[in-house]
């Protein structure tokens, strides 16, 4: 009786393991452990969505996209106040800090640092787009979880990975959108 009950469970175990799709095999993880604990932990704790992007080399097959996007959307949380635009001055300090959000390294448009060109230019972001609720929401959500819009993109998932709080993300949204923000009033470093 007991053994009979166990059979479906035993059958289900390998199935669940297969569904989780780990990227590295157990023997590969053993080799990675020689890199030291802090290095190895990152791979031992690789998230299923990271594994999926690794397996497909950042190009997810179309049939996986709907579920992937839905799961990424579900990770997005909003500030308790409900306000998606916070303090642009605080946002500027986050945007222009290499250790914090490091936005300027990839995006052009900062009046403080010369921007890179890995990501699209954000020059005068707010002046071009206005401050409608839709623009605020889109900007907030892309920063919170870029993979909800661009699966497997290089951009950090600031909110979903806990790199920034919802309030900090709202501050960055304000830095980009507020017409009074230095980002929109001062020229970008390197602008012609």
């Amino acid at each position: 009786m007991k053994a009979k009950k166990l059979i479906p469970i035993l059958l289900a175990v390998p199935l669940v393991v297969a569904l989780a799709q780990s990227y590295f095999s157990p023997s590969e993880l053993e080799a990675i452990k020689t890199g030291g604990k802090t290095y190895a932990d990152v791979f031992l704790n690789q998230r299923p969505d990271q594994a999926l992007c690794s397996i497909h080399r950042n190009r997810l097959p179309g049939d996986l996209l709907p579920k992937f996007l839905e799961e990424q959307r579900a990770l997005i949380k909003y500030p308790q106040s409900g306000k998606l635009m916070g303090d642009w001055k605080k946002g500027g300090a986050i945007f222009n800090n290499l250790q914090k959000a490091n936005c300027f390294s990839c995006h052009f448009g900062s009046p403080v640092h010369l921007g890179g060109d890995v990501g699209p230019s954000l020059e005068k972001y707010g002046l071009k787009r206005g401050q409608s609720e839709a623009v605020q929401r889109y900007t907030y959500e892309v920063i919170y979880n870029s993979w909800a819009y661009f699966p497997c993109t290089v951009m950090y998932r600031f909110g979903a990975q806990g790199l920034l709080t919802p309030e900090e993300i709202a501050d960055v949204v304000a830095y980009l959108l507020d017409p009074e923000s230095d980002f929109n009033t001062k020229p970008a470093v390197g602008s012609k």
Binding site: Y23, F24, E28, A31, I32, V42, F43, Q46, Q50, C53, S54, R57, N58, V118, W147, C152, V154, Y156, R157, Q161, G162, L163
Partner: peptide, 21 residues
């Protein structure tokens, strides 16, 4: 094979990986 996998891996709090850049 391990090197190739590591090169294409996405990992860590910033989801980084060699091939991604």
């Amino acid at each position: 094979a391990l090197g190739e996998k590591l090169f294409y891996a996405r990992s860590g709090p910033r989801d980084v990986g060699c091939a991604t850049c």
